[in-house]
Computed example of a mutant assay.
Amino acid sequence: MSSDPIAKRMKSTKTIGTHSGTFHCDEALAVFMLRQTDEFKDADLVRTRDPKKLEPLDIVVDVGGVYSPEAHRYDHHQRGFTEVFGSGGFDKIKLSSAGLVYKHFGKHIIARRLGLPESDPNVSLLWHTLYAELIESVDAIDNGVNLTDGEVRYANRTDLSSRVKRLNPNWNEPTSDEVYDAKFKEASQMTGEEFLGQLDYYANAWLPARDVVKAALDKRMEVDPSGAVVVFHQSCPWKDHLFNLEPTLPPAPSPILYILYPESDTPSAKWRIQCVPKSTDSFENRKSLPEAWRGVRDSELSAVAGVKGCVFCHAAGFIGGNETYEGVLEMARLALKA
């Protein structure tokens, strides 16, 4: 520790506590998030399971057997714990220590990162979105909730929780408290990079796309009287916004089935047609491109479809392309009738 008296005065007197030994994604992320707050930004960390050492600490996560926001105690292992995120309809997955910290500090962290007041509506929107996209999966994995009730068709070991798990010392390596603490620091930093990376994406790319999607949805009846075709004049993240905004739209003869957009910003850019899935995470489409087009390219596809300038149609029937906007719009209208 520095002997500089000025450094001592500037150093935080706050201390975060969590358990020692083998670590998991939830407390690694919880500690990182706490250090993004005004109150705990410079806090020290104590890793122990000794109740006497935990008792005087300013905040404790994932250990201690107590959930009490008033006392800054955020454990979820105790019998009778039932806390869920709640807001936004997220009421099926019990929270881990990451979810608990995010529930109580998330808006502050987001607002602080973006330089916005916590009351800003976009802070609340991002708070719900980041829970759905990142935190909920950490909560579910830590609490042993299966991804599916049916057969799991393939293994996924690239999720954040799996990556943190691999940072623990191997069973056949020498270990000590110092080794575990050093590895925990590495794990907390890794989860933090993922957290901030996702927050920055949703704040700086995903959120601005909402206005683009809203404008395109409002003009869809000008594209085709069915209301089934939406045109974006620039590529942007659209699926989440479409599913969120669609229920607010006036009735139309057809649900939205196809999205048209240019491949790039250049005037000569080719255009694509993409099917709207049944849900944001589904590989099933509301209406796929015609079966006869699938896996066919270029002049052969133009002959089959009866449309000039066709480039391709994916074998799965979820996306296709044409040299021009007029061509891809014609493909959409023919696909509607198929």
Results as ranks from 00 to 15, higher is better:
residue 7 A to E: 15
residue 7 A to L: 15
residue 16 I to Q: 03
residue 22 T to V: 15
residue 25 C to F: 08
residue 34 L to K: 06
residue 35 R to D: 03
residue 38 D to W: 11
residue 39 E to S: 08
residue 39 E to G: 02
residue 49 R to V: 10
residue 53 K to Y: 06
residue 60 V to Y: 01
residue 62 D to W: 02
residue 66 V to R: 09
residue 68 S to P: 05
residue 70 E to G: 09
residue 78 Q to T: 08
residue 81 F to L: 08
residue 82 T to M: 12
residue 85 F to A: 00
residue 88 G to F: 02
residue 91 D to T: 15
residue 95 L to N: 06
residue 97 S to H: 03
residue 100 L to D: 03
residue 101 V to N: 05
residue 102 Y to T: 01
residue 102 Y to D: 01
residue 102 Y to P: 01
residue 109 I to S: 03
residue 110 I to M: 00
residue 114 L to H: 01
residue 116 L to T: 04
residue 121 P to G: 00
residue 121 P to W: 00
residue 125 L to E: 15
residue 126 L to A: 02
residue 127 W to V: 07
residue 127 W to L: 06
residue 131 Y to H: 09
residue 135 I to S: 00
residue 138 V to R: 05
residue 142 D to V: 07
residue 143 N to S: 09
residue 150 G to C: 10
residue 154 Y to T: 12
residue 157 R to P: 09
residue 161 S to Y: 04
residue 164 V to Y: 01
residue 168 N to Q: 09
residue 176 S to Y: 10
residue 179 V to Y: 05
residue 191 T to S: 09
residue 192 G to P: 07
residue 200 D to S: 11
residue 200 D to V: 04
residue 202 Y to A: 04
residue 204 N to L: 12
residue 204 N to K: 14
residue 208 P to I: 00
residue 210 R to C: 08
residue 213 V to I: 10
residue 219 K to A: 14
residue 220 R to F: 02
residue 221 M to D: 09
residue 222 E to K: 15
residue 225 P to F: 04
residue 232 F to Q: 03
residue 235 S to P: 10
residue 242 L to G: 00
residue 243 F to D: 06
residue 243 F to I: 05
residue 254 S to G: 09
residue 254 S to Q: 13
residue 255 P to Y: 07
residue 256 I to E: 01
residue 258 Y to C: 02
residue 260 L to S: 01
residue 260 L to F: 02
residue 263 E to Y: 07
residue 263 E to R: 12
residue 265 D to R: 14
residue 271 W to E: 00
residue 276 V to M: 00
residue 279 S to E: 12
residue 281 D to W: 11
residue 282 S to M: 04
residue 287 K to V: 06
residue 292 A to F: 06
residue 294 R to Q: 13
residue 296 V to H: 06
residue 298 D to V: 12
residue 298 D to Q: 13
residue 306 G to H: 10
residue 310 C to V: 07
residue 314 H to S: 10
residue 316 A to I: 12
residue 317 G to V: 11
residue 318 F to R: 05
residue 320 G to V: 08
residue 321 G to A: 05
residue 324 T to C: 07
residue 331 M to K: 04
residue 338 A to C: 12
